[in-house]
Amino acid sequence: MQLTATYTHATNHHNPMEPGATVAHWEAADRLTVYDTVQGITWHQRALSGYLGLPQDHVRVITKYLGGGFGGKSAIWPHTVLAALTAKAVGRPVKLVLTRPQMFTSMGHREDQQQTLRLGATREGKLLALLHEKTSTTSPWDNYAESNHKIVEMLYQCPAFEATTKLGRANVMTSTWMRAPGESPGSFAIESALDDLAAQLGIDPIEIRLRNYADKDPSTGKPWSSKSLKECYTRGAELFGWSKRNPKNGDTRDGKTLVGWGMATGSYPVHNGQGNARVRLYADGHAVVQAGATDIGTGTYTIITQVAADCLGIAPIRCASS
């Protein structure tokens, strides 16, 4: 059994409530402090150091809170560098805030893309071969592309897998990370293709996923540190009454309303890297923990405080993070 399907995605823009905004202040001829809305403080410090020819420890980047980022505030963008250069030129602190229209052209986006999946499977729905072809646009000067294939090769066991990525240069700005970069559109493509394959073979969508379930990481052969996907399938089916689902598309109604029943798998990897922090313990028993981190709304500041308090054996109220 063979299946070929193509999925096309339009350009997506971040546009959080808080736009890109920078305050740049030169405290000395070679010392810069930048108040910026960024997701990666250390990344910005390194980038500004390189752009401006300053030692890294002469650049300070401060981000208190983030009014939405979604990946668009991970990379450094021109307005941050322009604010720093302008502040130096006028000899005064400079504040630069992007307008809403400028957010569409100045802080990256998820690239428009086309994914073609070619599946070969047995009549029982067991995958034999999977080819993933992705084409997307990039700017005239960069080669960024989301790695959609990583999620495709991770979710299911398939003995023959190949992925290719092609880039076309266009008169657009460089795209960037956005809300599960690669994993989101990649999941959509493979899950849609599996649903189509299941429909053609007359196999239940959950069942076809179980028949191709990856008990080990297909790319390395190593066991997962943890994986409860089968339990998720079982519990989800129970909660939604999956056994009562009518497998015929377009045949389930609630009065005059068509009712759709479907399921899909989504996953996102864990990324780790070297982290550093400075801890100061004072004579009165309170502690201050400093790290180059940003709380993007996931509670980072609270978690750092809790971890530090636990390690130091003091009450969280006696521990502050910044």
Results as ranks from 00 to 15, higher is better:
D204M: 08
D204Y: 08
D204T: 07
I206L: 15
I206E: 14
I206H: 15
E207N: 10
E207H: 08
I208T: 07
R209K: 03
L210G: 05
L210H: 08
L210N: 10
L210F: 06
L210E: 14
R211M: 01
R211D: 00
R211G: 00
N212D: 11
N212C: 12
N212A: 13
Y213P: 01
A214Y: 02
A214F: 05
D215S: 12
D215W: 14
D217I: 14
P218D: 09
P218H: 11
P218E: 09
S219C: 04
T220Y: 03
T220R: 01
T220D: 04
G221L: 04
G221C: 02
K222S: 07
K222M: 07
K222P: 00
P223D: 12
P223Q: 13
P223L: 10
P223A: 11
P223I: 07
W224D: 10
W224C: 06
S225C: 04
S225Q: 12
S225E: 10
S226H: 09
S226E: 08
K227L: 06
K227Y: 08
K227A: 03
L229W: 07
L229R: 01
L229A: 05
K230S: 02
K230E: 06
C232W: 04
C232A: 11
C232H: 11
Y233I: 01
Y233T: 00
Y233D: 04
T234C: 00
T234Q: 10
R235Y: 07
R235I: 14
R235K: 13
R235M: 02
G236P: 09
G236M: 08
G236A: 06
A237R: 14
A237S: 12
A237H: 10
E238P: 01
F240L: 14
F240Y: 11
F240V: 15
